[in-house]
Design a protein around this nucleic acid. Structure first.
Lengths: 200, 200
DNA sequence: GACCCCGATGTCAGTTACTGCCATCAACCT
DNA sequence: AGGTTGATGGCAGTAACTGACATCGGGGTC
C-alpha cells in the first residue's frame, strides 16, 4: 500500500475522477437552466461524460443528486448534540446542534441559495427535502435520548429544533446582505421561548 | 332542477357511481395486502372496474389516492384557528385548531390506522405525507397571520403545532386501547411548554 | 321526439424514470 | 503472467404518467 493516492490525477486513471461530483454539478446547472421536469437523466449523464445507467449507480433516483450533502450535516448535528454539556437542557443541546449545522452552511451560501431556488420551484424536490429534514429530526432525537432525555420529549424537541431551523434558513435566503445564519438561528430560538411561554 | 339525485342508484347511470371512492378503497386494500411497490395502478383500476387512464383522471399519481381527505382537514384547521377568541395567544389558537383536527380523526380510527400502516411501510408515501403536513402548516400560518400575528412568528407557531400533532398522532396509533386523540394533543402541548421553558 | 352538447370513460401510442443482466477493460494483487 | 476487482457501457424490459382522439348515455333545446 505505497502511495496509491498518486494515481488520482486528472485523466490518469481509466476514467475521469469524481464522477459523482460531475453529475452533481451537471444536474444543478441543468435544473437551474431548464427546470427539474424539463431535464432528463440522460442529459445530466451526457453533460457529465457518462451514461444514464452510471447515473443510477451513483444516485438512487433523479432527485437524490441534489441531496448528497445530507450525511455530513446529520453527523454534525448528532455529534454536537452529544457533545453538549451534561447540564444543558434538551432544547439547549438541540439548539447547539442546529447552530453548528448553520455554521457549516454559512460557508456555502451561494451554492445553498442556488440549490434552494431549484427545490422551491418543484414539489417533488420539496418532498425529498422534507424527508431529509425528517431524517435529521429522527437522528437528533436519538442523540437526545442517548443523553437520557425521555423518548417522546426527545422526538418533540428535535421536531421543534428542525422547525426553528427551517424558519431561520428561510430568512437567511431571503436577506440580500450577507447575514449570519447561526445568529438567525439563535434569534429564532429566542422567539420560540417567547411563543411557548405566552399566556393570553 | 327537480330531483336529479334520484338517478344515483347503483347501476342506474351509464357508469357505477363514486368511481373515486372505489379507487380509494381498491388502492388501500391492495397496498395493505401486497404493499405499495408491488401494486400497479392498472391493478387498482381493474379492481375498481375502471381503466388505468381513468385512475389518472381522478388522482395525479400513484400515491395521491391515499391523501384525498386532506382538504377537509385543512379547512377545519383554518376555520378553527380563525374562530378562536381574539384574546387567545397564537400558540393557543393553533392548539385549538390541532385539537379540532384530532377530534375529526378520532371517529375514523381504524381507517386511519390502516392507512398509516401502509404509509409507514413506504418512504415514497412518507414523502407525500410530509408535504401534506407542510401544506397544513402553511395554511395554519396564514390563518394566524389573518389574526394579526407577526409573519415569522406565525410560521414558527404553525410548524410547532404540526410537530406536536405528529407526536400525538403517533402515540395515538401506538396505543392498544381506545385512547382519546384530542386529549393526547393537549398533553403534548403541555409538554411543549415545559420543554421550551426549561432552563438548565 | 329529433337534435345537440357535455362529461366521464375507454383506447392507444409515446416518453421517461428506473432495474437486471451481461460485457468490457484498466488497475491492482499474487 | 495471470487472476481479480471495480467502475463503467450496452441493452432489454417494466411501469408510471401524458396527450390525442373516440365513445356514448343523459340532459337540455327547439
Amino acid at each position: 500500500m505505497s502511495a496509491t493516492a498518486i494515481n488520482y490525477h486528472r485523466g490518469m486513471g481509466r476514467w475521469e475522477p469524481n464522477a459523482r461530483g460531475r453529475l452533481e454539478q451537471a444536474a444543478l446547472e441543468l435544473y437551474t437552466d431548464r427546470g427539474f421536469e424539463q431535464t432528463t437523466v440522460a442529459e445530466i449523464a451526457r453533460r457529465a461524460g457518462l451514461t444514464e445507467r452510471t447515473y443510477f449507480r451513483h444516485f438512487a433516483d433523479k432527485r437524490e443528486v441534489l441531496f448528497g450533502g445530507g450525511r455530513e450535516l446529520q453527523e454534525l448535528l448528532v455529534t454536537t448534540a452529544a457533545g453538549a454539556p451534561e447540564s444543558a437542557a434538551p432544547i439547549d443541546a438541540a439548539a447547539a446542534a442546529i447552530e453548528a449545522a448553520g455554521a457549516l452552511l454559512q460557508g456555502r451560501r451561494e451554492h445553498s441559495r442556488q440549490r434552494q431556488a431549484v427545490i422551491a420551484a418543484n414539489p417533488e424536490l420539496q418532498e425529498r427535502e422534507l424527508i431529509k429534514l425528517a431524517a435529521f429530526s429522527s437522528a437528533l432525537a436519538d442523540a437526545l435520548r442517548r443523553r437520557g432525555v425521555d423518548s417522546p420529549a426527545a422526538s418533540l424537541t428535535a421536531e421543534i429544533a428542525i422547525a426553528v431551523f427551517k424558519t431561520a434558513f428561510e430568512r437567511w435566503h431571503e436577506e440580500t446582505d450577507t447575514s449570519d445564519l447561526p445568529q438567525l438561528i439563535r434569534e429564532s430560538f429566542g422567539e420560540l421561548r417567547a411563543l411557548a411561554a405566552a399566556e393570553p
